[in-house]
């Protein structure tokens, strides 16, 4: 199991456009990725390819989230997702 943490950089938090961009990126991966707020148990993690799950997570600007995935290429995949979360997508 690979694991990464990321700090949400978008000013609006992880919803609206930033959430859409993130979900689309997850959808292109051949892996199942989960997302949870830092400090929450791994079994409560949500499906990162679901926009509705991401929205219900309610991660705001500055919150830390944990991404988890299993399988080949998981480390590289998570690194690329961290990069997305740590960019202020709303500013672009």
């Amino acid at each position: 199991m690979s694991e990464r943490t990321a700090v949400i950089a978008s000013r609006v938090g992880l919803h609206a456009r930033p959430a859409g961009i993130f979900v689309a990126a997850v959808g292109e991966l051949p892996l199942e990725v989960t997302i949870a707020l830092a400090g929450e148990p791994a079994e409560d993690a949500m499906d990162a390819s679901s926009i509705l799950s991401i929205m219900s997570l309610g991660a705001s600007n500055g919150d830390t989230v944990v991404l988890r995935a299993d399988g080949e290429g998981a480390d590289e995949a998570l690194d690329s997702l961290v990069k997305i979360l740590e960019t202020d997508l709303d500013a672009e």
């Binding site: 859409g20 979900v23 689309a24 949500m46 499906d47 390819s49 679901s50 926009i51 509705l52 799950s53």
Partner: peptide
């Protein structure tokens, strides 16, 4: 559009 085919839903 993303919601329409959302895995959770």
């Amino acid at each position: 559009a993303l919601m329409a085919n959302d895995p959770m839903l």
